[in-house]
Amino acid sequence: MSVLTVAPTEIHECGDSALRVVAISEASEDNWLTVHRLADWLESCGAEGLHGAVPTYDSVLVEFDPIMVSARQVRAFVKLGLLELHHADESAKAPREFDVPVVYGGEYGPDLEKVAEYQGISTEEVIRFHTGKTYTVRCLGAPAGSPMMDGPAFPKPVPRLKDPRLSVPAGAVAVAGRQAVIAPAAAPGGWCVIGQTPLSVLNIRREPLVPYKPGDILRFRQIPAEAFSDFAGMDLVPLELEARP
């Protein structure tokens, strides 16, 4: 049995209906695991008055109904959860894997050349960096449960667009700073779009609405633009369930 190394934490006030718990270890992996396991624990308790928890990289926002519970009570409850984590068994949590076909550049990735130019490398090299690693889903973010991931090992962090786009299409594959993401739904966005997957990521007719969870693993694979329509309308599903061209 492998045991979680629980990172030290700080709990901050965040208005009358939320607390922010921040893990402050030097080890970012421990921070990430701690806030996600804490969120899982809080969710699984189903405690009345707790709306839920939003874990990201090193922090978790705990939302509650201040009529039913007080911030002080929730704080005590969070501390209890952190103690419980010391006994949590980590070995059973095997990640699932997803294969994401992407058409890079052109109309599918309007910022590919800009990113290449800024990095001082060719567009092929940008694609090689992007397809050349596995990505752990760090958290589900805005908009619409986007998989937030640590980005490719580019020479430099990627600056955000000066003029954010009013609408980035669903399936857009984008990078910014040291992060990478897929857009599950069309939304405004300031990240650099380098490609697009033809797969449907979001499906509001099923639960969960997006197929991946924090901790799952994604891989990007280049496909030619002609192949885009072969995948169109298909859902992104974990590899063992996959049956695709």
């Binding site: 208005g15 922010r20 990201t56 990289y57 922090s59 926002l61 939302e63 958290c139 973010g141 805005a142």
Partner: peptide, 28 residues
């Protein structure tokens, strides 16, 4: 780093305006 933000968060994202997030806010 991206973090969960509460409804009601007051932020200063630009030099022009204050932003107060309401119930439709992106969660991170």
């Amino acid at each position: 780093l991206s973090r969960g933000v509460p409804v009601g968060a007051v932020e200063v994202p630009s030099r022009e305006e204050l932003l107060v997030l309401h119930r439709g806010r992106g969660v991170t």
